[in-house]
């Protein structure tokens, strides 16, 4: 399911036009990104948790050339599915 299909399905379910839903989806994603940027966690019950994590700096070695690179620290957005969702997919197998 790509973005187009997703928006089509969402508009269908909410009784909105595709243009409306796409602006709403954009608005929702910007809200999520803004809060992740601020270091907030977004907990959606039954789905999972969006959070931003700090990765420390590290030295990586290129196995071919043996070149050592210092990788700078960074903040990474991450998603943790809820236990409920996890179990759902486990059972589905």
């Amino acid at each position: 399911m790509n973005n187009k299909e997703f928006i089509a399905k969402l508009s269908q379910k909410n009784g909105m036009t595709i243009a409306e839903t796409s602006t709403n989806v954009d608005a929702l994603t910007t809200v999520i990104t803004e809060h992740l940027k601020d270091g907030d966690t977004i907990n959606i019950s039954g789905f999972g948790v969006f959070e931003s994590k700090m990765r420390k700096e590290r030295i990586s070695v290129n196995p071919k050339s043996g070149q050592r690179m210092l990788i700078p620290p960074k903040i990474v957005p991450s998603f943790r599915p809820s236990v409920k969702l996890k179990d759902k997919f486990k059972e589905a197998e």
């Binding site: 973005n3 399905k9 929702l28 999520i32 990104t33 959606i44 039954g46 789905f47 589905a92």
Partner: peptide, 26 residues
Amino acid sequence: LFTKTFFDIIIEGLEKDGIVKINGLG
């Protein structure tokens, strides 16, 4: 309602296709 359906459809899409792509999120 919108947010609820938003995440519900993600789950639905995952069950159906195994992959859901949303622009601007991931």
